[in-house]
């Protein structure tokens, strides 16, 4: 668990980060969002002391971060940096093994861990371990970047625009992978992004920052339903908030029992979002849609239920 109180940083008299307070529970992902220059990256870099705070306190699992030497602190925190930052002169395996080697794990253990992580990220170890970063695609590099941060089983991950440099399709796929890995492994992370959609997709809670302050910190849904006046409203974007809320929910949450039957032409899967279901319903101009698993109808979903989730007041 991380607890931050009164965190402040000034550069040449200008306050970049102004007295922040927040907590991140074990297994939780917190997103720091805001425009560039709002202090989100500075905040992240203070957490592993790449930047020393001027004031305030950072506790990690009850321990003051200042009591630990910066190098030791950083070895215990995974860091995924903007633009991947893989070492081009090291192989994939060497890159992933960086922190374990710094921690003097024995070779066998490092190798086993590298293979485990490559497997976790869907990269065949025998094929990729000895490749150089320049031989990988952008998406593969990014996966290795995250694997490298997770190598020494850190208590938490700090992620600075982790998928920022990727095309939308690859980015979406990696975001899904990250969510899947989270569900299997339980990751505690603080994520910096300027992309609200990414924050909605990955984070349990979102802190909207502006001018060095946190304006609002809440779950995605509450942020959409009750954004504060001013910057938060503008940044969250209210025009399509109904659709955004729908994309936070799954079909399985609303499905009602239905008789077993072969799949019709139009259907949804239980794992699809309500947004996808709504889109299909509008297209078909129907009242309900079959929920299909393994080619058979298992349930159905009603338009009225979906509209209710997307409406004001529901939470």
């Amino acid at each position: 668990m991380i607890r931050v109180t009164g965190l402040t940083k000034r550069f040449d008299g200008a306050t970049a980060v102004n007295s922040l307070d927040f907590e991140v529970e074990r297994g939780e992902v917190l997103a720091l969002v805001g425009t560039s220059g709002c202090g989100k990256s500075t905040t992240l870099r203070m957490l592993n002391r790449l930047i020393e705070p001027d004031e305030g306190r950072i506790e990690i699992d009850g321990r003051d971060a200042r009591e630990v030497s910066p190098d030791a602190l950083r070895r215990g925190i995974g860091y995924v940096i903007q633009g991947v930052g893989l070492f081009p002169h090291w192989t994939v395996a060497q890159n992933i093994g960086t922190v374990p080697r710094l921690l003097r794990w024995d070779r066998g253990r490092v190798r086993a861990r590298v293979e485990e992580l490559l497997d976790l990220f869907g990269l065949e170890a025998s094929e990729y371990a000895d490749k150089y970063p320049s031989e990988l695609s952008g998406g593969q590099q990014q996966r290795v970047g995250v694997a490298r941060a997770m190598a020494a089983e850190p208590a938490m991950l700090l992620m600075d625009e982790p998928f920022g440099a990727l095309d939308p399709v690859t980015r979406g796929r990696l975001q899904d992978e990250f969510t899947a890995i989270r569900q299997r492994r339980g990751i505690t992370a603080i994520l910096v992004t300027h992309d609200m959609d990414e924050a909605f997709r990955l984070a349990d809670r979102i802190a909207v920052m502006d001018a060095g302050r946190i304006l609002q910190i809440d779950t995605p849904e509450r942020l959409l339903r009750g954004p504060r006046e001013g910057f938060v409203r503008q940044f969250v974007g209210l025009d399509d908030r109904a659709l955004r809320i729908l994309s936070l929910h799954r079909v399985s949450e609303l499905s009602r029992p239905a008789a077993d039957a072969p799949a019709p032409a139009q259907w949804v899967a239980p794992g699809d979002t309500l947004r996808e279901a709504a889109s299909r319903l509008i297209w078909e101009a129907g009242d309900s849609l079959a929920v299909v698993e393994n080619g058979r109808v298992t349930a159905e979903i009603h338009a009225a239920d979906i509209w209710r989730i997307g409406a004001r007041g529901e939470a």
Binding site: D71, I81, V84, G85, L86, V99
Partner: peptide, 27 residues
């Protein structure tokens, strides 16, 4: 040497000497 390399090395807890010997000089 790109700033991201230094950032990555330091962020993972490399000492300055190690960063110089293992990352900066080879690059």
């Amino acid at each position: 040497v790109p700033e991201t390399m230094r950032d990555a090395g330091r962020g993972m807890g490399m000492s300055r000497a190690r960063l110089l010997a293992r990352v900066e000089l080879p690059l």
